[in-house]
Nucleic acid binder design. Sequence first.
DNA 1: CTTTGCGACCGTGCATGCACAATCCCGCGC
DNA 2: GCGCGGGATTGTGCATGCACGGTCGCAAAG
Lengths: 252, 252
Amino acid sequence: MTVTKTRAETLSERIADEILAGALPPGLHLDEQVLARRFGVSRTPVRDALRLLSGTGLIDIRPRLGATVRTVTTEELDTLFVAMGEIEASCARLATLSMTRAERAALRTQHEAMARLAEAGDREAYVEANLAFHGLLYAGAHNPAIEDIARSLRRRLMPYRRAQFNAPGRLARSHAEHDLVVRAVLARDAAGANAAMLVHMSVVEDVFVDLAGAVQREGPAEAPAGAGGTLRREPRPSAARPARNSRSEARR
Amino acid sequence: MTVTKTRAETLSERIADEILAGALPPGLHLDEQVLARRFGVSRTPVRDALRLLSGTGLIDIRPRLGATVRTVTTEELDTLFVAMGEIEASCARLATLSMTRAERAALRTQHEAMARLAEAGDREAYVEANLAFHGLLYAGAHNPAIEDIARSLRRRLMPYRRAQFNAPGRLARSHAEHDLVVRAVLARDAAGANAAMLVHMSVVEDVFVDLAGAVQREGPAEAPAGAGGTLRREPRPSAARPARNSRSEARR
DNA sequence: CTTTGCGACCGTGCATGCACAATCCCGCGC
DNA sequence: GCGCGGGATTGTGCATGCACGGTCGCAAAG
């Protein structure tokens, strides 16, 4: 059996962590030699790690120009959130159709635990429980392919989701939205679960866009590790507020 | 500007093509040195290409064991088809909300052209037009993130979709299913478009599963380039027929 | 005859070296 | 003063070499 992790693998994880933590800010050029020195290896495993990471969407590699941490504009972020919503909604629907009795029970338990956290206003714990909650739905879909997609998207959005529960009253409203999802799942109402999750995720998106707009207007936070501070400032600060929701930009 | 394509890039495309064409059958071990000799380069660009390819799901790389063409079991294939259906349905819904007038017109034109192809029974042309048809919906969603996911999934499924239109009457029925999708899109009925596409894709899946079952029972086709012949034969031929549809396996 | 331990072979992981391309800087011309 | 061209610099792309881990085969023991 293979327990050996190659250096390239280890490196790609560490670099990914640093990107997600904000230590390597978007747009930063990733110099192979610098990274090699920093990690005490040669350029070869660094190159391998960067190739590996390019598949995750975290970095861009352009021939002869090297790798840069992927810069995400607000427009791209918006489409990512929409896509995430669609995938989550699909998971909710599939989970409604495929969850075992035990999985439904676990979902219900998790949901009820989150009610107490929301009431207590424990944001920290709620955020963590929220990840687990959505994870239960991914797993409940019994579809590794779509679960991979969901986790990959969630990973890419992670840096931008931190502050979302800081908005006043968001905890309670989030839980109320979850409640509609859970009810539909338990009632075997697949279409309802799909729709409820779509609503939930579009709210999440809107909350984010509001925050992002605020960040953009004031400029990013001071510390490089500041949550939400990894948004690229648009070249022209005027007209910086894009269409709020690509779902509603229709009918041109 | 960068017009330079690196050898690794070129190689990854060529290798991908060969995998998709069936020249490199699933399970085949990809020897770096052999590939290097075959393409007249050193092992380094080959390694880079393989790392790049590992992100697309076409190959597996296991430390110290090298790369193999990804083997897809019927179960995995089933989940992939379900995921594809979900993504396509999402695209259809988003396209309904976001398509411009011109895009709707193009969709209608394409659909009408396909009516003639279906009537004439021109499978070859219909398959190609079908790709374009779905491509119009991907693009119409105005969401690069979800479009990428759709194209990536379609790519992975490509080798297994060839024979689907050989089933008698499939062309006409496919077009009828499309018709429901197109009507919903043009009528701005997002939920309807979503549902219609879901139906269409689940039929596509069922047709495939029937064919796959047949292939498995008789063994793969003779030629290594044979369409549908890239299915891995299960170790135990008995009990080889799995649950037909992961959507209907529910309520355990 | 089957099973298990040992050794040789082979392929991947990683380091190093070189060449070319893209960028930057400085000097020259307008 | 500003734009433009050419050379130096820097970093990536690729080739090559070596070492370690894994696999396979063979032989010996049960």
